[in-house]
Amino acid sequence: MINDKNSQKIVDFIQNWARKHSIWVLAYGTGCGAIEIPPTMTSRYDAERLGVRGAATPRQADVLLITGYLTTKTLKRVIRVYEQMQDPKYVIGFGSCTINGGMYYDSYNTIKVLDKYLPVDVYINGCMPRPEAVLSGFAKLQELIAQGKANGAQKYKDNLDWYRENQKKIIPNWVMPEYNW
């Protein structure tokens, strides 16, 4: 009965519904995109009415929001934060810089394509994306969660070697603790 396919479907539906309507965001203020988060959260656009809320620590968060460019130095911290988060977890790439480098396309010190280092579920493009774009990105993520397609974390676990190889190319002195995630 418990392992029945149909009952599992019902459980998945209820869990995905709850996950969809309660998104706790860890807004990692890596780049200039962090300035768009306060207007999204406060009274003009009020993301809390959709269940989107700030989380204080990686342990409590569901979504890691990479706001803007990532320097090679920050990448290490972001990887550590991402691996501390609890499953199921999602990543939103925010702004053009996370897609192809944006205006930092020829910089020696930033990474260009975020998807090579962390599994991104939803991209929000624009430089800067306005709060409307951010909310539409959250709506897209909600849609993916409801369909059960936002499985970036599983992709990360399956292809860990490939991701680690890419990460270690950028970070020469890889001194990271072993996790029990």
Binding site: I14, Q15, A18, S22, Q86, D87, W181
Partner: peptide
Amino acid sequence: IDAMKLGSKTSAI
């Protein structure tokens, strides 16, 4: 909803 979501998290440390 938050409680349901927190209860359905699949990993712990």
